[in-house]
C-alpha cells in the first residue's frame, strides 16, 4: 500500500493535472463571483420583474446536480448552438454558471444584511444610488459574506473533480488513467484524498482567519 512509485514516476503528468484542477477552480471562482455580484445586486435593487427572472436562474441551478449541468453543457449545448466546446471550456462554463447562482444568493443575503441607515447616510451626502451601492453598501456586504464566500470557494475546488466525467484532464481524471494502468486503486485514491484535503482545508481556515481580522470593518 505504501509503495508510491507509480505516482513518483508519473509526477510530471500528475503535476500538470494538478495545475488544471487549480486553473478551473480559480476560473470558476472568478466567473462565479462576477455572476454572483451582478445577479445578487440586480435581484436586490432591480425591482420585482428582474428579481423573478434572475430568481428562476438561481433556483434552477440550486435544483440541478453539477454532474447534469456539466454533461449537458459539454454534450447537449453544441447540438443546439452549432459549435462545440473543449472539455475545459465546457467545464468552466458549467461550474461557473452553477457556482454563480450560489454566489448570487450569498451576495443578496449580504446586501440586505447591511443596515438601512447606511444607505440613508450615503444618499444624505448627495451620492447617487449607484455610487452608494458601489462604495458603501457592497464593500460592507462583501466583508460580511466572507465566511460564506470562503465556503463556496472550497466547493469550487471540490466540484472541479466532477468535471472528470466530461474528461477534463484535471487531477481526478488523470489519476484514474494511472489507476487504469497500475491497478493501485487504494493507494492512489488515498493520496488523492490527502491532496484535495491539503487544497481545501487551508483555504477554509485561511478565510476564517481573514474574516476574524476584518469583521469589524463590516459591522454597522
Amino acid at each position: 500500500m505504501l509503495d508510491f512509485s507509480p505516482l513518483v514516476t508519473r509526477w510530471h503528468f500528475l503535476l500538470n493535472a494538478f495545475w488544471v484542477t487549480v486553473y478551473i477552480s480559480l476560473l470558476s471562482m472568478a466567473f462565479g463571483f462576477v455572476i454572483g455580484v451582478v445577479v445578487g445586486a440586480l435581484r436586490t435593487y432591480g425591482g420585482r420583474g428582474i428579481d423573478r427572472v434572475l430568481g428562476f436562474y438561481v433556483d434552477s441551478m440550486r435544483s440541478l446536480p453539477q454532474l447534469v449541468v456539466l454533461v449537458w453543457t459539454f454534450f447537449a449545448f453544441p447540438l443546439i448552438a452549432g459549435f462545440s466546446l473543449s472539455s475545459i471550456t465546457a467545464g468552466v462554463v458549467a461550474l461557473s454558471a452553477h457556482l454563480g447562482a450560489y454566489m448570487a444568493e450569498t451576495v443578496r443575503a449580504g446586501l440586505t444584511s447591511v443596515r438601512k441607515g447606511q444607505m440613508q447616510a450615503a444618499l444624505a451626502l448627495g451620492m447617487s444610488g449607484f455610487d452608494a451601492i458601489r462604495k458603501i453598501i457592497l464593500p460592507q456586504a462583501l466583508i460580511r459574506m466572507l465566511p460564506s464566500l470562503g465556503s463556496l470557494c472550497t466547493f469550487a475546488i471540490k466540484d472541479s473533480a466532477i468535471a472528470s466525467v466530461i474528461a477534463v484532464p484535471e487531477l481526478l481524471r488523470q489519476s484514474q488513467i494511472v489507476t487504469g494502468q497500475t491497478y493501485r486503486y487504494a493507494m492512489i485514491y488515498t493520496t488523492l484524498m490527502i491532496v484535495y484535503f491539503l487544497l481545501c482545508y487551508p483555504v477554509a481556515r485561511g478565510v476564517d482567519r481573514l474574516y476574524r481580522r476584518v469583521a469589524h470593518l463590516g459591522s454597522s
Binding site: M1, T154, K158, D159, A161, V165, T190, M193, F197, C200
Partner: peptide, 22 residues
Amino acid sequence: VELFRSTPLILQIYWVYYILPV
C-alpha cells in the same frame, strides 16, 4: 469531519469503493 468536508464527494465515493475491501 474535516476530511469528509474538505474533499470532493465524487472522490469519496471512489475511495470508499476501493478502500473498504482492503
